[in-house]
Simulated assay, not measured.
Amino acid sequence: MFNQPETYNPANCMKHQKQNKTNEDSLSRSEIKSEQTGIPDRLKSGIEGLSGYSLDDVKVHCNSPRPELLKGHAHAQDKEIQKTETEPADVSGEPLHPVQEEHAKVNPFPVLVTDRLILRQFQETDIESVYYGLSHPEVIKHYGVHYNSLSATWEQIAWFKKIEKEETGIWWAVCDRHHHTFLGAVGFNNWNKENRKIEMGYWLLPEFWGSGMIKEAAQPACSYAFKNMRVHRIEAFVETENKNSKKVLNQLDFEFEGTMKDCEIKDEQFISLEIYAKLNIK
């Protein structure tokens, strides 16, 4: 027996039309923008639920000339979202910026600036520069960390993030202030909070040696450790043959405290380390 084909029924047609209209009304209500913020309610509640931050004091400003000046369709700064159009549909990414800024206020990374340098947080885009530095024969000659491949260098990038998250240290990418060229690194690890001491390290790409860059970078870093991390003692362990590093420490007013003879093995040879320290004497 053949199935009877469905016949046209005006009543069924009206029923489907009403259902579609109901669905459209439901969708439009879910996309209604908040009168207070100008952000679609569903988008607003979704971001608030995921981030834990309230967007009640964020405001969308339509028909703003600001985005066009920045060659965009929307621009967010602080708690203000500027957009060129009148409809809120294309601001889906912008409410995240106030959330990110609120998160940064809770746990901001300290960016340090000098006359020539900017010390910033390491980014994944620094991987090639870090690999170049920590595979260069002149850099790793007296440095305890080195890598043989770009992929292996991700371990160092992960380490920077790890010590920052665990609050056992902090390292900065040292860059040219005006051209943002990557120059090297400076930072602290092995933070002993109980005894208020920390270990300092640094390295610089060879093409910038002799320029005073490490001294200029280490000065604000040490000041940050003393003032913001409440460290009393900064230690540095230097291979006895590393004359350039010892020169920098002397310029930074670190005091030589002694030599640990044959305390480590490097390249199947015993090496000796000299201990330098700087105290926060007020």
Rank of each mutant, 00 (worst) to 15 (best):
Q4N: 12
P10T: 04
Q17H: 01
K18D: 06
T22I: 02
N23Q: 01
N23I: 01
S28T: 04
S34P: 12
P40Y: 04
K44M: 14
G46W: 14
E48N: 09
L50M: 15
L50C: 11
S51Y: 01
S54P: 13
D57K: 07
K59I: 10
N63A: 06
H75V: 06
Q77T: 14
I81H: 04
Q82H: 13
T84S: 03
E85M: 14
T86G: 04
P95G: 12
A104M: 12
N107E: 05
Q121W: 09
F122Q: 09
E124V: 07
E124R: 13
I127K: 02
S129D: 11
E138N: 07
K141Q: 14
V145D: 14
L150F: 04
T153C: 05
W154N: 08
E155L: 13
Q156Y: 06
K161Q: 08
K161D: 13
I163V: 10
E164F: 09
E167L: 05
E167Q: 04
G169A: 08
H179P: 03
T181K: 15
G184R: 01
V186F: 01
N192D: 15
E194Q: 12
N195W: 14
R196S: 14
I198Q: 14
P206K: 08
S211T: 04
M213Y: 12
K215Q: 15
E216L: 05
A217H: 00
A218Q: 05
C222L: 15
C222S: 15
C222Y: 02
F226C: 00
K227N: 03
V231E: 08
H232E: 12
H232F: 06
E235N: 05
N242W: 04
K246Q: 15
K247M: 02
L249Q: 09
T259S: 15
K261W: 13
E274I: 03
K278M: 14
K278N: 11
